[in-house]
């Protein structure tokens, strides 16, 4: 079973994040950059499937030069190789364009299964795996908290608002995973050393047959026209419990007509 894992580099969600003043794209210069947290679960799941069924795991990333760090980090967990779609004309691409580029890149690779994180912590559009399934005309097995592979038959437990659905399909398919699916491994020292020499292929827009004016900020299907930090919340009341904290709490709620 050959698997492609989608990995995105994002600003660390536990650090301060901003947009560029000029073009209102995500500021990746001032932020510390990490692998999108959910993608680590996707890598782990891909490695587990490979360990059980054989095949190769390829990391696919679209991003600028800096994304190389995240690619090496991903490879250090165990995947065999990586493909890096990198082109200056991609800067500022919206989700729709990103899905087009990734779909093209996927069509140059051989795979049975694509595994992605169910959402990214920066864009949070959470629609990319569905968009890819649409573009590639393959099964959409998204939002998985469990994946079972038997030959070419795939079964996932798809998380829903009030529980889950059991969904079945045959390969090829796009699976997206939540953090409930597994516990990602830490890279071993050996893994980190080996990652340095694993093959990373770079693809440009020209390699994918996409013209630069079909991508990037200029071709974005939506745009940010205004951005501002959330106004700081007015400091609230904080009182120590002196035996009547619960009563005080109830009084506050009653005053707010919540009781």
């Amino acid at each position: 079973m050959n698997i492609v894992v989608l990995v995105k580099q994002v600003p660390d969600s536990s650090s301060e994040r901003t947009l560029h003043e000029s073009d209102k794209t995500v500021d990746r210069d001032s932020a510390s950059l990490v692998i999108n947290e959910m993608d680590e679960y996707a890598i782990e799941e891909a490695l587990k499937v490979k360990e059980a069924h054989g095949g190769e795991v390829t990391v696919l990333t679209m991003g600028p030069d800096k994304a190389t760090e995240s690619i090496r980090k991903a490879l250090s967990m165990g995947p065999d190789k990586a493909v890096h779609v990198n082109d200056p004309a991609l800067h500022g691409s919206c989700a729709l364009v990103t899905s087009k580029v990734l779909a093209k890149a996927l069509s140059t690779l051989e795979w049975d299964l694509v595994i992605a994180g169910a959402e990214s912590t920066d864009g949070q559009v959470s629609a990319l795996p569905a968009m890819l399934a649409e573009r590639l005309g393959v099964a959409q097995l998204t939002g998985a908290r469990k994946l079972t592979v038997e030959g070419s038959a795939l079964t996932v437990e798809r998380q829903t608002d009030d529980g889950y659905q059991v969904v079945q399909a045959a390969t090829p398919a796009i699976v997206s995973v939540w953090d409930t699916i597994n516990e990602p491994r830490y890279p071993s020292f050996k893994g980190i050393m080996q990652a340095k020499s694993k093959p990373v292929t770079t693809l440009t827009l020209a390699d994918l047959g996409i013209s630069p004016d079909e991508a990037g900020l200029g071709a974005a299907t939506s745009e940010v026209v205004e951005a501002a930090p959330r106004p700081p919340k007015q400091a609230g009341v904080k009182i120590p419990d002196e035996g009547d904290g619960g009563v005080k709490l109830a009084e506050f709620l009653a005053a707010g007509k919540f009781v």
């Binding site: 919206c94 989700a95 729709l96 899905s99 169910a118 559009v125 959470s126 629609a127 990319l128 795996p129 569905a130 968009m131 399934a133 649409e134 573009r135 959409q140 998204t142 939002g143 998380q159 829903t160 608002d161 974005a220 299907t221 939506s222």
Partner: peptide, 18 residues
């Protein structure tokens, strides 16, 4: 989660911004 996925597929089909 599902609404966003419907929207994503619809955006691809109709080449529309989301």
């Amino acid at each position: 989660s599902e609404g966003k996925e419907v929207a994503g597929r619809l955006a691809v089909k109709t080449e529309s911004g989301l």
